[in-house]
């Protein structure tokens, strides 16, 4: 009599049965992914990487490149929770003895995975999209709006003014850390800076002559499928 309770288990083989070489082709068709082919797995990049060193050893740029080159999709997917954690410090690219643009290649791998539906939308991607939307719309970003807009996107109930529909700082829900982060400098800030920042929050700084260019930009981004 079996008392283990898991006698029904069937273990599926771990064996890699094939490569998906189209995946690598797709990564390398992107301008920033081209240099992936040059990697010889020396691991100079990984050893330099702060994310690998201080966050999670599963974040391994060299390894991701190997997996992508052979198209071992399931292995890449297993690391989906760490793959987006790059801080873009560019030590990898800076040091690579083979001239691989490692940071760019990793982003190209992520883009390809996203395009093929192999990875769920990851946290940094959400912010990247939010940020890019702001750039596309106004030509420039505004720190306050970016901050409170993002807070709102995170699910906090931010109070907005009735006319311009801009978030009003500190009304409604604000995380405690943000209050402290913002209040400290505000307390000691020159009044004219305060006014300027308030103005920027109400009236988003814009690039002039932007509309025509914006349309071209939107077209390009749409072609690349970046914001979908």
């Amino acid at each position: 009599m079996d008392v283990s309770g898991d006698w029904n288990l069937i273990i599926l083989p771990r064996v890699i049965n094939d490569y998906d070489l189209d995946f690598a082709k797709e990564v390398m068709s992107l301008p920033e992914g081209k240099t992936m082919i040059q990697c010889y797995q020396c691991s100079y990049c990984t050893a330099s990487c702060p994310v690998h060193n201080y966050w999670d050893e599963r974040y391994n740029s060299r390894h991701f490149i190997h997996l992508a080159r052979l198209g071992l999709i399931d292995e890449l997917q297993k690391r989906a929770d760490v793959m987006w954690r790059c801080v873009s410090c560019h030590k990898c690219t800076h040091r690579c003895p083979k001239g691989v643009l490692v940071e760019e290649v990793l982003k190209a791998i992520l883009k390809t995975m996203a395009k093929k539906g192999l990875i769920d939308e990851y946290p940094s991607k959400k912010f990247d999209k939010f940020f890019t939307e702001s750039v596309l719309e106004y030509g420039r970003i505004e720190d306050g709006e970016l901050l409170f807009g993002w807070i709102e996107k995170q699910g906090y109930n931010v109070v907005k003014d009735p006319i311009l529909k801009k978030p009003i700082p500190f009304l409604g829900e604000t995380p405690e850390w943000l209050k402290q982060l913002v209040m400290k400098p505000i307390k000691s800030m020159n009044i004219s800076f305060l006014v300027l920042n308030a103005k920027h929050m109400l009236f988003h700084p814009r690039t002039k002559n932007w509309n025509k260019f914006k349309q071209v930009l939107r077209k390009v981004v749409q072609e690349e499928g970046g914001l979908t």
Partner: peptide, 14 residues
């Protein structure tokens, strides 16, 4: 206009 920083680069190359 904005340089796009790291964020736009991760979204759109061109």
């Amino acid at each position: 206009n904005c340089c796009g920083a790291m964020e736009s680069k991760n979204v759109t190359f061109m």
